[in-house]
Write a protein that binds this DNA or RNA. Sequence first.
DNA 1: ACGGTAGGTCTACGTTGTAAACTTGTCAAC
DNA 2: GTTGACAAGTTTACAACGTAGACCTACCGT
Lengths: 226, 226
Amino acid sequence: MSPTSSQTAKRLDPDQLATSALAIADAEGLEALTIRRLAQAHDVTPMALYRHFSDKDDLLAAVGDRILADIDLPAPTEEPWETQLRAVLTAFTEALRPHPKTAGLTLFRILVSPPGLAMAERTMELLTQGGFSTDNAAEVGRQSICSLITLVTTEPGANEDIDPTTREDALRAKRAALSALSPHRYPLITAAADTLICPTSADQYYALGLDLVVAGIRGVLAGPAA
Amino acid sequence: MSPTSSQTAKRLDPDQLATSALAIADAEGLEALTIRRLAQAHDVTPMALYRHFSDKDDLLAAVGDRILADIDLPAPTEEPWETQLRAVLTAFTEALRPHPKTAGLTLFRILVSPPGLAMAERTMELLTQGGFSTDNAAEVGRQSICSLITLVTTEPGANEDIDPTTREDALRAKRAALSALSPHRYPLITAAADTLICPTSADQYYALGLDLVVAGIRGVLAGPAA
DNA sequence: ACGGTAGGTCTACGTTGTAAACTTGTCAAC
DNA sequence: GTTGACAAGTTTACAACGTAGACCTACCGT
């Protein structure tokens, strides 16, 4: 049929490999993503993957790029820079949210993959528009983006295994550890135990995370007002 | 002599094991910290370590605790809560800074190890003092502390290998990748390439990171002022 | 003097990433 | 057509990893 499907069915496609690698890691964690496992999922010998990725690191980089490719960068508008910046950072976060176990892979790829570069450039653009020098925009943008990656990576609840019994056990263990603490010595921690283990709602969690980041940016720009 | 040194010289001490494990990982990266390597450093069979740590994860947890033990929590004062909070978060950051490659191990241990708990409780105390509800203090504190861990973990420059030639190569490669970008499509990124690769000074880097975090806290507390 | 036990050792297994040499299906050029 | 080269998948192999399980052995309380 199409020129690409005219070849032997065995032909592998790096993009498809990255996609199913991402699926495996999302479902069962990064440690479940092994060369052999991915090869098996494509009915192929492990070594076959090395025709398309030089390394396992190279494969992981491709997975990171795959995630970044989903960024849906909003078009520039006439709104104030803060509003647009929040929209850009939100778009970034939305792209990572489906992949809490793998979002960390994007860290080294932002300044390499085109969608990451586009977002980074746009972020710096808005920051300089807001009044930051080029260098400050670079450092502030970097730190903000890192914080958002961490926000996704450490999202409580989504990190644990899919197996419901294992997940329940982990949650129970965590809860037990916290409630075993002396409420006398740690009154606030024990009082907020439930919140610390699992936030009220994921949407609120992300809303607060973004608020903290953009409020930080505005605050730093305004100067160290006491 | 002393009761502890009266035994056979072979006796291992979990604290010493964690300390030298930390040293290995700091010097050569987390992936260089293997059971066999740590055992060899103590002239002992790999399996000997399992008398003191149930798992490798258990060992890594001990390394995380080892780092947190260095937190030098400032005593409460009469200063405003923001000032004190910044001091607490600074103390936390200072404890992690010597260990950029391993600071991530502290993430799961803060709510377990006593020094981590003390810092977390104190942070929540100051946040509620500032006006946050208990639950909000928990979420804001959590996010702030995670951001600071990430700040250390992603500190540019310190992450790479100690081997100077390897490090130089990595830096050169990164610089080359950035300067290969089209200055037309990515004017700000290429203009700030040097800053993105290696910040002006580590102290400024951390000062800005802390500023962003505490400014974010203050901004969120003040409400979404446009 | 003597058994128990804490803390080492030895051996062995399954899993991982990947190097090296091989086979094979496809296509360009004669 | 035949051929030769090249891209892509196979086979085999290895070193390193975490760790299970059986063993030894020096110490200590009785």
